[in-house]
């Protein structure tokens, strides 16, 4: 048992010093996703009924491939940051919360990597 009040223990510690980066990266990726997202969603809808060769040809251009990779990185980063806040807000059990946050992080990295490798494969072949 400690005689120190919890308020006293927390006083003077300050913030975790990692919040600003989260805030800033969320805004940077948001700004990037304004043009990238519109371009991307529009082309996805247009290509929905496209035959294989047309869709494949679309990703064979260096511009499309590069912008798609940039889109994938910024959207999964932005999505991960948003999901992290949602877990933090609604899950109060510490262990579960951290498991969900780390799980989301891992899932985002794997999915983004899968998409990037596929884009590069289409681009190169």
């Amino acid at each position: 048992m400690t005689f120190e009040a919890e308020l006293h223990a927390a006083q003077g510690l300050g913030s975790a010093k990692s919040g600003l980066r989260h805030w800033l990266v969320q805004r940077i990726t948001a700004a990037l996703l304004i043009p990238l997202g519109v371009w991307f969603v529009l082309f996805f809808i247009l290509l929905l009924t496209a035959p294989f060769d047309v869709a494949y040809g679309w990703l064979s251009s260096p511009w499309t491939a590069s912008l798609s990779i940039l889109f994938i990185i910024s959207s999964f980063y932005h999505g991960y940051l948003g999901m992290q806040v949602i877990w933090e807000d609604y899950v109060s059990r510490e262990t579960l919360k951290w498991a969900l946050i780390l799980g989301t992080k891992l899932l985002s990295i794997v999915a983004a990597l899968l998409a990037i490798v596929s884009i590069l494969k289409i681009f190169i072949s």
């Binding site: 996805f44 294989f52 869709a55 494949y56 990703l59 798609s68 959207s75 999964f76 999505g79 999915a111 983004a112 899968l114 998409a115 490798v117 596929s118 884009i119 494969k121 289409i122």
Partner: peptide
């Protein structure tokens, strides 16, 4: 976003 990942993997 995962739907699009599935789409591009299928395309590849």
């Amino acid at each position: 976003a995962f739907l699009w990942v599935i789409w591009v993997v299928a395309l590849a």
